[in-house]
Every structure is written in structure tokens, then in C-alpha cells.
């Protein structure tokens, strides 16, 4: 099996301006933050970010990396409204595609199954049609004749997800209470990069969790980055919870350019994930 181990910077080298990047996790939970920070350090721009959004979207908006965001919500969970994202929206700095959460799943699922769309009731009668001007309905060809929303496939150039355990071949294991939609992000994307809390031997997966936790397999993954505490400051249960104190520091920098510049210099500009963790632990 191929050895797919790479670094955060190797992942960024695979990305180009204007790409559509899907990011796994949910809100401020199990986000691949070491990869997000690597994008933050890069010269990349004009990105389209697709996510159940949290500080991934907020941080990249704050740094002017985002041209367009596609989301069901953007939230820090314990801080319901993501302040950096709000500022970007209220400044008209990004194009926003607001979808129903289930529609977003359906778009990723359609892309992963190579279908042009999938039908659903979700979105009917709502302003999702204003937020997605090209959105169309489709009539059931069967006797019911129901007119349903045709959620267009949401193909991704790249997927970034953070898992608990992975092996060098790209098999991934999700040990937390919710796998979210990470497998769909991987299957909807052309290039798939996974960061993990810990690299393990393939034979050792059963020591960490039951078979059902091995949700990501190597045909869904092109590169693996080992990043212990790689989801920090978002939660990565059961390995660690959210760093609420640090999240509050991050949130408080919104709308305060000097504070954000200091935050960026201290944490985001740290050249490696290890340097970032050192700065976090020394605060």
C-alpha cells in the first residue's frame, strides 16, 4: 500500500487559487484546524468553502481567503454566532450560499454518487431559492407527481477532514459520538486530505475502537497528516473537548483589527502545528 503521509504544507502545495474546498466536522467540532491554519498562512485566495461551518469559515473570512461560502450555518456552538463570519457577511466581503442543512448533505451525497441532483422536500417555499438563484424543482415521474427541490450536486476540488486515528495508507477511524458528514466530503472531492490525532499501524485499529468506527477507507484519501491536537481549539471528543477559553480569545478579536493582528502574529503565523501548540500552551 502506498505511504500517503505528508505535512500540512504539502497539502497546501496541492491547492490553487479559486478552488472549492469542503471542510468536514460540524460548527466548532472536529475541524481540521492545522490544515485550515496552513491555508491561512499561504497566499491562497478566492476560495469557495463548503462546510457545516465554524471557525474554519470564520478564520478564512477574517484573512480574506474566501470568495464564496456554501453552508447550512456558521456557528461556534457555545458562541452561537461566528463573529468573524458575521463581519465578513455584513461587509459584503463574501458571496454566501445559504442552504438547509439537509440540502447540503444531499448536494454532497449527489456529488459522491456522481448524480446531477437529488430530490427533497427541504427548501420548498423557503428563501433557499433566493439564496441559490439557479435552484430548480423537479416533478416526480410517478403517479404522485410531487414537485420537489432538485438539490444540485456539490462537487468539491478538495476535501479536508480531521479524524481520530489513521494509518499511513489513508484508512481513518472516527472515535467520537458523531461522524458528521466527513465521508461524504471525501467522496464528493477530487483530492482528499485527512489529518489525524494519531497515526497507528493498520493492525492496531481494533485496539482503538470497534469495526464501525473505521468509517474512512484509503480509496477515499490521498494524503494523511499526523496532527496531534489538530482540531484545536474545536472539540475532538473523546480525545479532548473544545478549548472554550481559547475560542473566546479568538472570538473577541472580531472587529478589533489590532487584537486580530496580535492573535494572527502569535498563533496563526506560527510556521508549524508544533509551534502553534507551543504558543497555545504558553499563553
Amino acid at each position: 500500500m502506498a505511504d500517503k503521509r505528508i505535512t500540512e504544507d504539502d497539502v497546501v502545495a496541492e491547492l490553487t487559487d479559486g478552488m472549492t474546498i469542503g471542510i468536514g466536522g460540524w460548527g466548532s467540532r472536529r475541524k481540521p484546524m492545522s490544515l485550515v491554519r496552513a491555508i491561512a498562512r499561504s497566499s491562497l485566495r478566492d476560495l469557495t468553502i463548503v462546510a457545516y461551518g465554524g471557525p474554519d469559515i470564520g478564520l478564512l473570512c477574517a484573512l480574506g481567503k474566501v470568495r464564496k461560502a456554501v453552508y447550512g450555518f456558521v456557528s461556534l456552538d457555545s458562541i452561537p454566532l461566528e463573529p468573524h463570519f458575521r463581519l465578513a457577511r455584513q461587509a459584503g466581503a463574501i458571496e454566501a450560499v445559504e442552504m438547509d442543512e439537509g440540502m447540503l448533505q444531499w448536494g454532497l451525497y449527489a456529488a459522491s454518487l456522481r448524480l446531477p441532483f437529488l430530490p427533497t422536500r427541504a427548501g420548498l417555499g423557503s428563501d433557499v431559492f433566493r439564496s441559490m438563484p439557479g435552484l430548480k424543482t423537479v416533478r416526480s415521474p410517478y403517479d404522485d407527481g410531487e414537485e420537489l427541490v432538485a438539490v444540485p450536486a456539490l462537487p468539491l476540488d478538495v476535501a479536508l477532514v480531521h479524524v481520530h486515528r489513521a494509518d499511513a495508507a489513508g484508512n481513518g477511524q472516527l472515535l467520537g459520538p458523531d461522524p458528521f458528514f466527513d465521508d461524504l466530503f471525501c467522496m464528493a472531492a477530487k483530492k482528499r486530505f485527512v489529518s489525524c490525532e494519531q497515526l497507528v499501524e493498520t493492525a492496531d485499529f481494533p485496539k482503538h475502537g470497534p469495526l464501525q468506527t473505521q468509517r474512512i477507507h484509503r480509496a477515499m484519501v490521498d494524503g494523511v497528516v499526523e496532527a496531534k491536537r489538530g482540531a484545536h481549539f474545536t472539540s475532538c471528543d473523546p480525545d479532548y473537548g473544545r478549548d472554550e477559553a481559547f475560542q473566546r480569545i479568538y472570538a473577541a478579536t472580531a472587529g478589533d483589527p489590532a487584537a486580530f493582528a496580535a492573535f494572527k502574529a502569535r498563533y496563526l503565523d506560527a510556521p508549524t502545528h508544533a509551534d502553534y501548540l507551543k504558543a497555545v500552551d504558553e499563553r
Binding site: 450555518f73 457577511r89 445559504e98 427541504a122 423557503s126
Partner: peptide, 20 residues
Amino acid sequence: LERPKAQLLGMRGAPGNTVC
């Protein structure tokens, strides 16, 4: 929608919830 005075949560699950 294009440039809100105040951005809130987003659509979340509301469109699907209400018709299902």
C-alpha cells in the same frame, strides 16, 4: 441576503423541518 445588516445563524434545518 446579499449583504445583511446583521448576519444570524443561517438557514440551519428550518426549511426542511417546516415542510416535513
